[in-house]
Amino acid sequence: MSAVTHSAAIPIPDAAPLITVRNLSFRRGSRIIFENVDLAIPRGKITAIMGPSGTGKTTLLRLIGGQIRPDAGRIDVDGACVHELGRRELYQLRKRMSMLFQSGALFTDLSVYDNVAFPLREHTRLPESFIRTLTLMKLEAVGLRGARHLMPSELSGGMARRAALARAIALDPMMIMYDEPFSGQDPITMGVLVKLIRTLNDALGLTSIIVSHDVKETASIADYIYLISDGSVVDHGTPQALEHSRSGWVEQFLHALPDGPMSFHYPAPTYAHDLALAEGPALA
């Protein structure tokens, strides 16, 4: 797959994508977050959405989840336009979507066990013995069966995220959105999470979306990567294809180079001018 800078065509890597985003525009006040973004998330694959901090990656997940509405364009999830759904349909759809929040977002007043059992208790009328079995299965999958009596405050960051992951898969969703799953984790935890995301995706037949700026870990498990910067898709392709991209920006981002098209400096008048050293108009 060739690397295209500023995709104008709709990129569809697979036949029937689970999620398609077309001409998405979103702004917060006067600040443009997204401008004409097109994305397609294939079924059963791990798709990564990467970009520098502050490019609205989390916002994209919230748009997909229907928590906020786009200013223009449309987002379809499994054939339904998310922001045109009524409340009831949206809630039905969300039962099949799942999201792992950056902080884990475990309910602090419930134990790990009760957190994982929470969606089951809310959405099913299963007897408690059933719920117990299911909950223990999910906890076993993330390796926290032994920690089920702990409260969220007693967990390390990595354990909290795994517990949240167990909760995210409690209802056997069709997809999981991961919001920065690796940020602030030590290398071992990162490795565990990377493996876990891959295993769960393949074992449960999920569709995964990872939003991250941790290049190495994300690239190691993603099947397809979208690079976003300044509100639009800069490039997309498989990790291998992007590796050989000739775009200076992609190279800078993927290899974490300090110099490149993306400037280290926030836009500013020239340094000399700011320090009142230069004579005459320094600002273009």
């Binding site: 919230r62 039905q92 929040f101 929470f118 969606p119 959405h123």
Partner: peptide
């Protein structure tokens, strides 16, 4: 994010 998370769980 517990409230947002709850909404995403359709609660």
């Amino acid at each position: 994010e517990q409230l947002a998370c709850m909404q995403m769980m359709a609660v």
